[in-house]
């Protein structure tokens, strides 16, 4: 599954892949995989990188001859598409204004795939056709999500996944030898790792959502344009409302959970649990058995 996602990512979400892997440059194929390092946004390099040759090329392209495009080249590519997108937006305005000529339609068809890139400028200025070179460059740079958060969250997610698989493997091994309950170090590790799946999920969620910025719909609709026009205060108030409400529910839930955990299942009076079961052969009831 990881292999499939990696290949898919290299195919359709080149930007996300480049950010996750802190691939600043397009290298000679096959690209090396950076196991760990410190991505530096300013110098556009990864300091103290520990790399495994060939691996990224294999994951992302399943070949040793295809390139994995680096961030710097992606920015150059996106700058071109933004310029083309400005043209697309202008043609769209003409169409909206009632120009129904075949030439305008054909010209728009040619560049309509870049319209979304043009719309990225809307975050900077409303009249995008007058955008300056600097603004276009800034918009192009904004097409790459911040690299360090992507790089780290992805590695935490994968690291936890490997850790959990290892623990499952060890538990399975000791369980088959019926000595699992004697491996106290393993039991402690499992207890400590209880939040691991949750943290891994959150990290994965972050990689997916932060990694597709600045897009709501990749290359079509920028997040800044798709967001609601509600005020920031509205969003803060509703978010606070949710936090307060759910915290209140958590208190009630925990109170009831502890209360009923202490009472045990026989508190339900279903007649099915310990202390209330009568033996099937019609023997003495087991009630009060615990008191002896």
């Amino acid at each position: 599954m990881g292999d499939e996602s990696g290949y898919e990512l290299g195919d359709v979400q080149k930007t996300k892949l480049a950010a996750i892997e802190a691939e600043w440059e397009t290298h000679e194929p096959p690209a090396a995989f950076t196991l760990i390092g410190f991505p530096n946004e300013e110098t556009q390099t990864t300091d103290a990188a520990l790399q495994i040759p060939y691996l990224l090329g294999l994951i992302a392209t399943r070949s040793i001859t295809e390139e994995v495009t680096g961030i710097k080249d992606l920015i150059v590519e996106h700058e071109d598409r933004i310029r083309s997108g400005i043209g697309a937006y202008g043609l769209l305005e003409q169409l909206r204004a009632g120009d129904e000529s075949e030439e305008t339609k054909a010209a728009f068809e040619d560049v309509k795939d870049d319209l979304g890139y043009g719309l990225l400028l809307k975050r900077i200025r409303d009249d995008i056709e007058n955008a300056t070179d600097e603004e276009i460059k800034a918009a192009a740079k904004s097409t790459i999500p911040a690299v360090a958060p992507m790089f780290w969250t992805f590695r935490i997610m994968v690291g936890l996944g490997v850790l959990m698989l290892t623990l499952i493997g060890l538990s399975f091994y000791f369980a088959t030898r019926h000595t699992a309950e004697k491996q106290t170090w393993l039991l402690k590790a499992l207890l400590i790792c209880l939040p691991a799946p949750w943290i891994a999920c959150e990290m994965g969620w972050f990689v997916a959502e932060f990694g597709r910025q600045p897009w709501s719909i990749g290359e079509v609709l920028p997040t800044a344009l798709s967001a609601s026009t509600r005020s920031e205060a509205d969003i803060w108030m509703s978010l606070t409302g949710f936090i307060v409400f759910y915290s209140g529910l958590l208190v009630v839930e925990m109170y009831l959970m502890f209360k009923f955990a202490r009472l045990g299942p026989s508190a339900l009076h279903t007649g099915r649990y310990h202390h209330e079961i009568e033996s099937h052969e019609g023997g003495a009831p087991l009630t009060n058995a615990g008191a002896h």
Partner: peptide
């Protein structure tokens, strides 16, 4: 889009009221 962001607080009021049903 227009209803859910326009009627933001009205729909949040509905949502928060509905929360009390399951619990």
């Amino acid at each position: 889009a227009v209803a859910f962001s326009g009627l933001y607080w009205a729909l949040l009021l509905v949502l928060f009221a509905l929360f009390f049903r399951p619990v």
